[in-house]
Design a protein around this nucleic acid. Structure first.
Lengths: 193, 193
DNA sequence: AAGCTAGCGGAGGGTTGCCTCCGGATGCAA
DNA sequence: TTGCATCCGGAGGCAACCCTCCGCTAGCTT
């Protein structure tokens, strides 16, 4: 029950003919990999090659490098937000922490994507909105329950987490340990101190 | 009194003739700007242009893009580590926090650099060592004083901070607020919980 | 001040990636 | 089955960048 579903149609929509749709999906998948491997500057011709389609097909579906970027990015965000559903059955703190963990895991490999999109993109802002509508309720619930300090907003948490997301961790264990430390910072200060 | 000064000479050394040295420095400065603005893929010809030297000169000083990268990077790290000197006059916690703030501030703009260097570079490892020898003592002192939890290492802190470093903050205020939250996570857990 | 040599600049050849364009193939509706 | 609208692929022109090479310039030394 995120706000997804009626998101902005600003970006390239999935084509209707069966073969075209196949190609579209193959392109997105290939692009995700290529960007993850080679960074934001991955060759579009390489993407087409991986997807097993002609370069022309790529350009028809995504007139611009950015279009392709955005399509990949949007899909990631969708998945993340979707995963917030059902989390409200957990206790407030656990729900928040669980989702934030997913946040990190989902976005961890998308460095290149994020870097490219961070600047001036309306898609980015609308995705941001989606993320907020998925995570902010969890945050507020935790604050009302007194298990998260009151002097910070959800946007602070997003920055904190997405910062970690960008860092390179040698092992998932260390990543979780560090995330744990960061999360401890969210706890309300102990009464005496 | 960091371990700087006799650092690895693996990389291009500053030339001896006056004009050459001028060009070398101009190149580093230009490169720093170019990388900050255009990311890791900035055009080397552009760098030379900014520095007001011929492309040949650039290639003579830095045979490889990576050489240039490393020269810029090393200089940044030097400055940061150097700034740890004298901090031990402050109380343990304050000293650590002060340095970490500098860490964030110094490295904040070097996204592109870091991304490129993060992989397989011996320069990177040696810089890492330098950072550790500058920061780890501060950390240990704070731990002995009981103002930082004992179950984490300095490397965890580095990850935490350099994560923040990567994130894009709209204002320095928010950046500091978030950093504050993260730092609170370093405090030892309050006795009861 | 005169010569030696380190250093300079930028033309240019090669490579790579971008993007357009259109003849041919193919899903889909009737 | 047939027709057509949609979609495909990749050749090819264009632009950007990489990097080498070599004739000239100008610090430095004596």
């Amino acid at each position: 029950m995120t706000s997804a579903g009626q998101a902005p149609e600003v970006f390239a929509q999935r084509p209707k003919r069966a073969d075209a749709r196949r190609n579209y999906d193959a392109l997105i998948t290939a692009a995700r990999k290529a960007f993850a491997e080679n960074g934001a500057a991955a060759s579009l011709e390489d993407v087409a090659r991986r997807a097993g389609v002609g370069i022309g097909t790529l350009y028809r579906n995504f007139p611009t490098r950015r279009h392709l970027f955005e399509a990949v990015y949007v899909e990631e965000v969708r998945a993340l937000c979707h995963s917030a559903e059902g989390l409200s059955e957990l206790p407030p703190w656990d729900a928040l922490v669980a989702w934030l963990h997913r946040f990190v895991a989902y976005v961890a490999t998308k460095r290149a994507l994020a870097e490219q999109l961070l600047h001036d993109s309306e898609i980015f802002t609308s995705c941001r909105a989606e993320i907020f509508s998925a995570g902010e309720p969890l945050m507020r619930r935790a604050q009302s329950a007194g298990v998260v300090r009151d002097d910070i907003g959800f946007d602070d948490v997003v920055r904190l987490i997405s910062g970690l997301t960008m860092a390179q961790f040698p092992s998932p264990e260390q990543r979780d340990r560090v995330l744990g430390v960061a999360l401890d910072g969210l706890r309300p200060p102990a009464p005496p101190r």
